[in-house]
Write a protein that binds this DNA or RNA. Structure first.
Length: 592
RNA sequence: GGUCGCGUAGCUCAGCUGGAUAGAGCAUCUGCCUUCUAAGCAGACGGUCGAAGGUUCGAAUCCUUCCGCGAUCACCA
C-alpha cells in the first residue's frame, strides 16, 4: 500500500472522469530538487491514449487530484510534468507506522523454496588474497540480501582440496620443509603451505632452465621437469589411496583450514554447509552415462563423451575423458545434483565465481537444463570482475598478490592512526579501541569493494590505499556513531506516536522519503544480486541525514513535540544504517 | 577470428531498465567548530556520457556499425 499505488489509482480515475479513457499504467518519478513537489507524474506517455496538449492534461489531472485526494495538497505543471506536493501528515503517518518495527524493510516471512549461495571455494595450496576477499564479501552479502528479501538461504563453498596443485605444495614441503609446521615456525597454516607452493614453482622453473640449457626444447622441458613428474606421481598415489600420501595430504590441508578459518572469522563470513572436492570429484559420471543413454550426450570414437551445444550458439564440450575419468564439468554437474539431493527444498543456486568462468557456467547451466532438472532454470552465475593491481594481474606463484590477512591488518592500522590523530576515544580501554579500529578498517575495506558494481573490474592501488572520507564505510559509520551520541544524551526518548499535525522541515521530509525507499531497495538488490545498490542507498540516506543534522537542531529544539520527533527520526535512521550495513557484513560503532 | 563484459568530470564510481538543466566522492579553491562528534556541512571549479548512425515527442539508457580495454574459446581445475 504505497503512496504511488494509491496515486496510480487516482490518476487513472481522473483520466477516466475527464477523458473517458482507461490508462493501462501511470509513470512516476521523484520530483527534481529545483521544482516544488514530492512526486511527479509524467504526462507524455498518456498522449498515446489521450489527445491534447500535455500541459493542459497535466493541469486538469492535478486539479482533480487536489480536489479528490487527501494527501495531495497542491500541484504544478512544468512542460509535461505534473509535480505533486504531498501533505506532511502523510509522511508523519508513515513514520509512526514503521517507528517501532524491527528490521523495517526486511521481508520477515520466509519462502519455502531455498536458494544455495556458493562463494569462496578456494584451492588449499595457498593463502587467500584480495581477489578472494571480493568473492567472499560479494557472496556473503548477496546471501544476506536474499535472506532479507524473504528467501531461505544456504551458504556453502566447495573446497578444492585435491589435484595437482596441492601435490606441488606437498612435494616441496617433503623436499625442502625439514619438518616445518605452523607450531614450529609460528607461521599461519595457509601461509606455510603457500610458501611451499612458491618453492615448488621456483624449483620447477630452475629445472626447466637446466633442461633448456642442456638442449631440450622449452615446451618439452615444461612437461618433463623431474619435479613435475614427481608431483604427478604423487597425485596418482593419492588417487590410489596411498597411506603415506593421504596422511600428508590430510596434515597439510588441516593447516590450511586452520589458516582459512582465521581469515574467514576476521572477514566476518561464514558457511552453512561445506563440500569438498575430494568427496565430489567422482560424482557426475553416472549422470553423464545416464544422459548418454537418453541422447543428451554423444560418444566419440576414442570413447570420450561430449555435448553438442552448437545449436545454442556454443561449441561442443567434453564431459567425460576417453579414459572414463571426470573433468571439471562432470564434477560440477554432479555437485549441483548432490546439493539438491542433500537439501530437497533448493530451487535455485547462486555461484559466486569470477567472470573468467562465464563460459563454463553458461555451459553448465545449459547442460543441467538439457538433463531436465526443474531447478536448472533458477541458476545464476554471480560473475564479478577481477581485482587487478597497477602492475597487472595478481599471481600467487610469483608472489604478486595482496594477501588477505596483510590487507586486513593494514586497514586496521590505518584506522588506528587516523583515530589516534583525531583523539576522540577518551575512556575507551585498549581492548575497546582495538575492536573499534577493526570495525572501521574492515568497514572501509568492505564498503570500498561492495559499492562498485560486481561486473566491473577493480583496480586496486596499494599505495593509495582505501579512503576514509567521502563515499566510504567510515563516513557512514561515523554518522551512525553521531546518532548514538545524540540518543545517549536524549535519555528520555518517548516511544509515543508523533503528532501528525507537525509541520515538517524540508530536511525531515527528504529523510522520510529516503527511508521509504529502503524496502524496495532490498528487493531490487536481491533481484539483481547487487550489494552495490544497498551500499549506494545507505550513502544517500546518510548524506541526507548529515545535511539535516547540520541545518536542524535536534536536542536544542524547544518545542517538545518537534524535539521528540527529531530524536525518533534520528534513532530510526541509525537503525536503518545498521540493518543496511548488516546486509553488507559491516559493523557499526557506538563511538568513533 | 568467434563469443561475453566493460568504456560517464583529472582520478574512483552512481544514474532506479527511455524522461526535465547527467549526479556523488577524491583532488584543487572558498566559507563554517565558545551550540547535538569537522571521519562533518555549505559552495566554486570540472562533462561533445568512447565514435558515428538509427528508433522515439524525448536516448548516458534501446538497436546497428566501428574503436579501445579485459575475459574466454583445454581430454587443467
Amino acid at each position: 500500500m504505497s503512496l504511488q499505488n494509491d496515486l496510480t489509482q487516482k490518476v487513472i480515475e481522473a483520466v477516466k472522469q475527464l477523458y473517458q479513457v482507461e490508462l493501462p499504467s501511470v509513470e512516476f518519478q521523484p520530483t527534481r530538487k529545483d521544482f516544488e513537489g514530492d512526486i511527479t507524474v509524467v504526462v507524455f506517455p498518456m498522449l498515446r491514449h489521450v489527445k491534447g496538449n500535455p500541459v493542459q492534461i497535466g493541469t486538469q489531472i492535478g486539479e482533480y487530484l487536489v480536489a479528490n485526494v487527501d494527501e495531495v495538497s497542491k500541484c504544478n505543471v512544468v512542460q509535461g510534468f505534473l509535480n505533486i506536493v504531498i501533505e506532511d501528515s502523510y509522511y508523519l503517518n508513515f513514520f509512526n507506522s514503521i517507528f517501532s518495527e524491527n528490521d523495517f524493510g526486511y521481508v520477515k516471512s520466509q519462502s519455502d523454496d531455498a536458494v544455495m549461495v556458493e562463494y569462496s571455494s578456494p584451492n588449499t595450496n595457498k593463502p587467500l588474497h584480495l581477489g578472494h576477499i571480493r568473492n567472499n564479501l560479494l557472496g556473503y552479502s548477496v546471501a544476506e540480501i536474499l535472506k532479507a528479501s524473504g528467501k531461505k538461504v544456504y551458504k556453502t563453498q566447495i573446497i578444492n582440496d585435491r589435484g595437482i596443485h596441492i601435490c606441488k605444495s606437498m612435494l616441496a614441503w617433503q623436499k625442502f620443509g625439514e619438518g616445518e609446521t605452523p607450531e614450529s615456525s609460528g607461521l599461519k597454516g595457509d601461509h606455510l603451505v603457500g610458501k611451499y607452493y612458491v618453492a615448488f614453482d621456483k624449483a620447477y622453473k630452475e629445472q626447466i632452465a637446466e633442461l633448456v640449457e642442456a638442449g631440450t626444447e622449452k615446451e618439452k622441458a615444461e612437461k618433463e621437469a623431474p619435479i613435475l613428474l614427481e608431483a604427478q606421481e604423487m597425485l596418482r598415489k593419492w588417487e590410489a589411496g596411498d597411506d603415506e600420501v593421504v596422511s600428508l595430504w590430510k596434515k597439510m590441508n588441516g593447516w590450511v583450514y586452520e589458516g582459512f578459518d582465521v581469515t574467514y572469522k576476521n572477514l566476518g563470513v561464514d558457511f552453512d554447509t561445506l563440500y569438498y572436492e575430494s568427496d565430489t570429484y567422482l560424482l557426475g559420471r553416472d549422470v553423464v552415462k545416464d544422459g548418454l543413454e537418453r541422447g543428451v550426450f554423444f560418444k566419440k570414437e576414442d570413447g570420450s563423451v561430449w555435448i553438442d551445444l552448437t545449436e545454442d550458439g556454443l561449441d561442443e564440450k567434453i564431459v567425460l575423458r576417453s579414459d572414463g575419468t571426470a573433468v571439471y564439468m562432470t564434477q560440477d554437474i554432479g555437485t549441483a545434483i548432490q546439493r539438491v539431493t542433500d537439501h530437497p527444498d533448493i530451487n535455485g543456486m547462486v555461484y559466486t565465481v569470477g567472470n573468467e568462468q562465464d563460459y563454463h557456467f553458461k555451459v553448465l547451466f545449459l547442460i543441467l537444463k538439457k538433463l531436465g532438472y526443474s531447478w536448472a532454470e533458477q541458476l545464476y552465475h554471480l560473475s564479478y570482475g577481477m581485482v587487478d593491481l597497477p602492475s597487472g594481474k595478481m599471481k600467487s606463484r610469483e608472489g604478486t598478490v595482496v594477501d588477505a590477512d596483510d590487507l586486513i591488518q593494514n586497514m586496521e592500522d590505518t584506522a588506528a592512526s587516523i583515530s589516534q590523530e583525531l583523539g576522540k576515544l577518551d575512556g575507551y580501554s585498549e581492548e575497546e579501541k582495538k575492536q573499534l579500529y577493526r570495525t572501521i578498517g574492515l568497514g572501509a575495506l568492505k564498503y570500498y569493494i561492495l559499492k562498485v558494481d560486481p561486473k566491473k573490474r577493480i583496480l586496486f592501488n596499494p599505495e593509495e590505499s582505501v579512503d576514509f572520507q567521502g563515499n566510504t564505510g567510515p563516513f557512514i559509520q561515523y554518522t551512525y556513531a553521531r546518532i548514538q551520541s545524540i540518543l545517549r544524551k536524549a535519555d528520555d526518548v518517548k516511544s509515543s506516536a508523533v503528532e501528525t499535525s507537525l509541520e515538517l522541515h524540508e530536511k525531515e521530509k527528504e529523510l522520510l522519503k529516503q527511508i521509504q525507499l529502503f524496502p524496495e531497495t532490498i528487493q531490487l538488490a536481491a533481484e539483481n544480486f547487487s550489494p552495490a545498490l544497498v551500499a549506494n542507498y545507505t550513502y544517500d540516506l546518510v548524506k541526507e541525514f548529515n545535511s539535516f543534522y547540520q541545518q536542524v537542531s535536534i536536542l536544542g529544539e524547544t518545542d517538545e513535540q518537534k524535539k521528540n520527533f527529531r530524536v525518533q527520526l534520528s534513532q530510526k535512521v541509525g537503525e536503518l544504517i545498521q540493518s543496511a550495513f548488516r546486509l553488507l557484513g559491516i559493523d557499526v560503532p557506538e563511538r568513533m
